[in-house]
Design a protein around this nucleic acid. Structure first.
Length: 678
DNA sequence: AGGTGAGCATTTTTT
DNA sequence: ATGCTCACCT
């Protein structure tokens, strides 16, 4: 089977004997549509990387292979694992990217056909929201109201469902806002996250020569987490794979938990409709959890209608039963969980990192945090505000953006008077009005005499100075082989952003920290410059599409107990898992009940359960603090769906009264035994 | 231009 | 309880 290993870039490290039978089939089925139903913990990533390596071994040019994921984290992990299996050069040629960065790549080379310039700017969600807010204030009549967040969600939903937004549809405020929003984006030569997909699909669909080019580039396509794809993502895959139909998708309908943001579970449930006569492989052997955990998970998910039949199993025997614990209220729930973690860390030497507490809502983490701090237990909360939400980073990114594309209104407006340079809100509003009136960008308006004629000479001078500043640095950035990091560094020096920070921060420590963030970002830019030729624009693409990266900081620190939502926990695993708040109204969440998406809530719990390797504890409360007042709770409807033989209901009183000595004694015994056996 | 208080809603989150 | 927005005030 090892045909010409050396020249195809293989290192002879692929041992198919490492795989079980279904995995082997998934890896070696290279031609035609392939649906890999990969249950939780069944070695999904392994199969994908082996499959890519196998393709390369079979002589496929790595440059013809595309593997698409949802997150940069997943793409990076996959790339790293592939690097260990094939030669570095071969691994580097494989395209492993997120849907969004793939679309950026496609659009950067062809978007001119759609009337955008190829240096378009990508607006992130806050840019998007800011723009929508501005538009609403200028569009809404006195008695009209529209929640910007709602508008944003609806606009996004319309785009993602693939419905072409028809202009002048009806005279609703939302429609007016939506239309103006799209116009504003186009004027700014900007696209939002949804546009990346919409426009890429449009480009491939309407321009056969472009489509053909990408079709012959990507001859073998793999899609990870296929159950999370939305309509546009499916369209994209179809367009790319249309000719050769070498599409392998990997996913698990039982882990589809993102329906609320547009994921179409039908993409995987009805895969045959999109790609006729696929090979279907089921990965059901689980290498993660105990039998008890898997049985519990299976018993729950069985209650969902409309699913691909499958059942996780393990060759490992037994495992401890799942504990179900009722507590009087959420405070005691948190107290019980944290104190038990402390005890098991002390008695059983379970490292803090082996514990995770999973919950439905972020608000639930608060009580936990208080308790963990009280007991001096190290912990990390996954989720929360990202690096990119920080004011100073947003300012810096905005400055960098207008150096690449000064027509990016959202960025320009952010920094036009930061630091204060004598351009007032009134002036900005005037510039904005003119730009809308003439269908140009704000940048353009700033430079027109029509604006400056309306202003005092002092304001006009302020604007002129700002325009000059930006132009000067734009010119430097535009120079080939310029050092972007140095140029941007000089810019923030010249505008004396450090003083701005000192002025606006409450403490000098805060100012220093924020300044440190700026420096970190500039350091990243310098690093990017040394590994890529794509310049500042490329750097901006990378950071706007990877807002989650921040791992480095946390890695060195001991990470501690993990507090995480069940959504964010997908794909992770822990030896010891506590699933808290299993109550009606929380899980399933009230809103989901109202919307009729109980099935998805059930899958969410399923995802939570299958995170556990060894020990799983479920808890619920009789009372819970909600919105500042205590309300009574009912146990989740899902509890009675769990296999009773696997679940042990435990009285909290009894558990708490268990003498500490007993557990310690048991532990001593275990240690003694281990010492003898070892 | 920036700070303060009333009013209000309150799931999940990546790109 | 809390955090966010918006209107109004210094």
């Amino acid at each position: 089977m090892c045909i010409g290993g050396a020249q195809t870039g293989i290192m002879g490290r692929i041992r198919l004997s490492d795989l079980n039978e279904p995995q082997k089939k998934a890896v070696t089925t290279t031609e035609g549509p392939l649906l890999i139903l990969a249950g939780a913990g069944t070695g999904k990533t392994r199969v994908i990387t082996y499959r890519v390596a196998y393709l390369i071994e079979r002589g496929i040019d790595p440059a013809n292979i595309l593997a698409v994921t949802f997150t940069n984290k997943a793409a990076t992990e996959m790339r790293e694992r592939l690097r260990k299996m094939v030669q570095k050069e071969a691994a580097a040629k494989v395209t492993m990217s997120t849907f969004h960065s793939l679309c950026v790549r496609i659009l950067r080379s062809g978007i001119s056909r759609l009337g955008y310039k190829s240096n378009f700017t990508i607006y992130d969600e806050s840019d998007q929201l800011g723009l929508i807010k501005k538009i609403i204030t200028r569009t809404a009549a006195k008695d009209e109201k529209l929640d910007p967040n709602l508008a944003k969600a609806l606009i996004s939903k319309a785009k993602n469902s693939g419905v072409a937004t028809s202009p002048n549809d009806e005279e609703s405020l939302l429609n007016a806002v939506s239309n103006r929003y799209h116009t504003a984006l186009k004027t700014a030569n900007a696209v939002d996250f949804d546009d990346l997909l919409t426009l890429a699909v449009q480009l491939l669909n309407d321009h056969p020569e472009v489509r053909q080019r990408w079709q012959s580039k990507f001859r073998y396509i793999m899609v990870d987490e296929f159950q999370d794809t939305n309509r546009l993502q499916l369209d994209l895959v179809r367009l790319l794979a249309d000719k050769r139909r070498n599409v392998a998708v990997v996913g698990d309908d039982d882990q589809s938990i993102y329906g609320w943001r547009g994921a179409e579970i039908s993409n995987i449930l009805e895969f045959e409709r999109h790609f006729a006569n696929p090979t279907v492989v089921k990965l059901e052997e689980n290498y993660r959890s105990t039998h008890a955990i898997l049985s519990t998970a299976n018993s729950l998910i069985r209650h969902n209608p409309r699913r691909r039949d499958k059942k996780l199993w393990t060759s490992k025997p037994g495992g401890k039963t799942i504990r179900l614990i009722e507590t009087p209220n959420d405070r005691e729930e948190a107290q019980f969980v944290t104190e038990e973690i402390a005890r098991r860390n002390a008695d059983e030497s379970e490292p803090w990192e082996s514990f995770a507490v999973l919950f439905r809502m972020n608000a639930q983490s608060r009580v936990l945090e208080e308790n963990l701090r009280r007991l001096h237990i190290p912990y990390r909360i996954i989720g929360g505000k990202s690096f990119f939400d920080r004011r100073e980073i947003k300012d810096l990114v905005a400055y960098m953006t207008i150096l690449v594309n000064p027509n990016a209104d959202a960025s320009l407006l952010r920094v036009i008077n930061t630091p204060a340079r004598g351009i007032s809100d009134r002036t900005i509003e005037l510039a904005l009005r003119q730009s809308v009136h003439h269908h140009t960008s704000v940048w353009h308006a700033l430079r027109s005499s029509e604006l400056t004629n309306e202003l005092s000479s002092r304001t006009a001078t302020s604007i002129e100075t700002f325009v000059q500043l930006i132009e000067r640095y734009r010119a430097q950035i535009a120079e080939p082989r310029g050092d972007a990091a140095a140029i941007v560094g000089r810019l923030i020096e010249e505008i004396d952003y450090a003083s701005e920070l000192r002025r606006s921060c409450k403490s000098i420590e805060e100012a220093t920290e924020r300044d440190g963030n700026i420096r970190d970002m500039l350091r990243d830019l310098a690093q990017f410059g040394s590994r890529s030729i794509k310049g500042l624009a490329g750097f901006l693409d990378e950071i706007v599409l990877d807002q989650e990266r921040e791992e480095e900081e946390q890695q060195d620190d001991k990470r501690g107990v993990t507090l995480i939502t069940m959504h964010a926990a997908k794909g992770l695993e822990f030896r010891n898992v506590y699933l808290i708040g299993l109550e009606e109204g929380l899980l399933p969440h009230e809103r989901s009940k109202a919307e009729g998406s109980i099935d998805e809530e059930r899958r969410l719990l399923y995802v939570g359960i299958t995170r556990a390797r060894q020990n799983l504890t479920l808890t619920y409360c009789r009372d819970r603090m909600k919105y500042g007042s205590v309300s009574a709770c009912q146990p989740s409807m899902f509890i009675k769906e769990l296999a009773p033989e696997c679940v042990e209901r435990i009285d909290l009183r009894k558990l708490l009264s268990t003498p500490v000595i007993e557990s310690t004694a048991k532990n001593r015994f275990a240690q003694l035994k281990a010492a003898i056996n070892g």
